[in-house]
């Protein structure tokens, strides 16, 4: 039944098409011969496979700059060589001027403290994460963030830290510290953060 129905319909369309094209013109003003309808195509169901499982989370979550707290244990001895010890010894972040990757004078002081601590704990590896404000394109900022991270790395290496202890990564404008859209936020977001990724003393 269904086959009959489709056959007769095809015939009908073929006839209609023939009649129309025989006396008509194509879209460029030329006769448009109507080819006979080919058979229906075969199609396979082909579904997109499910995405692969997520990879393990990245190491080295960024810590906020160390601040004085009301923590009752604040007086207790910080473990030498621990991440907390590093944050007490040096601010783990430096800031940059607009569209610049030059290490500022205030940043140089901070980086000298970072370098001194790193020289004291040679088992510790760090990653420098370069960041930018939102006033630039994604791609340009990825490149600029890489320049910032490498400026910090070069500074630390010049202070005597082994280059193979320092990796770099750029997050461009993708990870703003301050989500605001104003001068103060942009100044915060033009930074390079030093993240301890390996070799720090762990509390027992």
């Amino acid at each position: 039944m269904s086959r009959m129905k489709s056959l007769s319909m095809w015939a009908g369309i073929g006839l209609l098409a023939f009649t129309l094209s025989a006396c008509g013109t194509g879209r460029r003003g030329e006769p448009a011969p109507l080819p006979p309808p080919p058979p229906p195509p075969e199609m396979n169901d082909d579904f997109l496979p499910p995405p692969p499982p997520p990879p393990p989370p990245e190491e080295g979550i960024m810590l906020p700059p160390a601040e004085a707290t009301n923590d009752p244990y604040a007086d207790m001895q910080v473990l030498p060589g621990s991440i907390e010890d590093f944050h007490n010894a040096a601010t783990p972040i430096v800031f940059f001027d607009l569209d610049s990757h030059s290490v500022r004078a205030d940043a140089a002081e901070t980086l000298a403290q970072q370098a001194a601590w790193l020289l004291q704990y040679p088992m510790v590896d760090v990653r420098i994460e370069g960041n930018c404000d939102e006033r630039g394109t994604r791609e340009y900022n990825l490149a600029l963030g890489a320049k910032r991270a490498n400026s910090v790395k070069d500074f630390l290496v010049a202070q005597g830290v082994e280059p193979n202890r320092i990796s770099t990564i750029s997050y461009g404008k993708e990870r703003p510290l301050d989500p605001g859209s104003n001068e103060a936020a942009w100044a915060q977001n033009r930074n390079a953060q030093t993240v301890v990724i390996e070799g720090a003393t762990q509390p027992l």
Binding site: S21, G24, R27, L34, P35, P37, P39
Partner: peptide, 8 residues
Amino acid sequence: LCVCAFGL
């Protein structure tokens, strides 16, 4: 399957 031009 088919894209045919009809033309009146």
